[in-house]
Amino acid sequence: MTTILLVDDHDDIRDMIARQLQQRGFAVATASNGLEAVLQTAQVAPACILMDINMPELDGIEATMQIRAADTEQRIPVIALTAYALPDDKDRALAAGCDAFLPKPVDFDQLFQQISELIGEESPQD
């Protein structure tokens, strides 16, 4: 089963996105901040990471840079998900190593299309 790591500091947003991913047949691992995301990435080896940008402990930009620095075997795709969808925010996320940038609220059709493009497969229920 394809595992997605979902990183968001808001429980309700994390739960809503996790349900959508699970309904599409993905296994979901979660983290509530960037520090947990770095640790979970090493433990879970997800096929893709959905990374919130504004979080406590370690923000999504710094977490992505740490994941990229440690990711020597493969390049795990990272999709930045953020309510702060200004051009500068997108540029910062992409410069940190994110592969894609999607605004919140999440358009799930767009999200699943992006996941499919980045991991090279359709969602399990497609």
Rank of each mutant, 00 (worst) to 15 (best):
residue 77 P to E: 06
residue 92 R to F: 02
residue 47 A to D: 11
residue 122 E to W: 12
residue 119 I to W: 11
residue 80 A to G: 03
residue 25 G to M: 09
residue 45 A to K: 12
residue 48 C to V: 09
residue 105 P to D: 05
residue 72 T to R: 08
residue 14 R to K: 13
residue 36 E to F: 05
residue 53 I to F: 04
residue 37 A to K: 00
residue 95 A to L: 11
residue 21 L to P: 05
residue 69 A to K: 12
residue 53 I to V: 14
residue 59 D to G: 09
residue 3 T to E: 09
residue 78 V to M: 03
residue 105 P to H: 10
residue 44 V to C: 08
residue 90 K to G: 08
residue 73 E to G: 10
residue 58 L to S: 03
residue 103 P to D: 11
residue 26 F to T: 05
residue 61 I to A: 03
residue 19 R to T: 10
residue 48 C to H: 08
residue 13 I to Y: 11
residue 67 I to Y: 01
residue 43 Q to I: 08
residue 99 D to V: 04
residue 55 M to A: 04
residue 86 L to N: 12
residue 88 D to R: 13
residue 69 A to T: 06
residue 79 I to S: 06
residue 19 R to H: 14
residue 40 Q to M: 14
residue 1 M to S: 15
residue 122 E to M: 14
residue 96 A to W: 00
residue 1 M to D: 10
residue 117 E to Q: 15
residue 94 L to E: 05
residue 10 H to L: 15
residue 77 P to D: 03
residue 105 P to E: 04
residue 115 I to L: 07
residue 97 G to E: 02
residue 31 A to H: 01
residue 102 L to D: 01
residue 84 Y to L: 14
residue 84 Y to G: 08
residue 47 A to H: 12
residue 3 T to G: 07
residue 53 I to Q: 08
residue 102 L to A: 10
residue 99 D to P: 02
residue 81 L to S: 01
residue 73 E to W: 08
residue 62 E to K: 11
residue 66 Q to G: 07
residue 16 M to H: 15
residue 64 T to E: 05
residue 7 V to D: 02
residue 15 D to M: 13
residue 59 D to F: 01
residue 120 G to P: 12
residue 73 E to I: 07
residue 114 Q to Y: 10
residue 64 T to K: 04
residue 102 L to C: 08
residue 118 L to Y: 12
residue 42 A to E: 15
residue 71 D to F: 00
residue 107 D to I: 09
residue 52 D to Y: 05
residue 106 V to G: 06
residue 29 A to L: 06
residue 30 T to D: 10
residue 112 F to H: 03
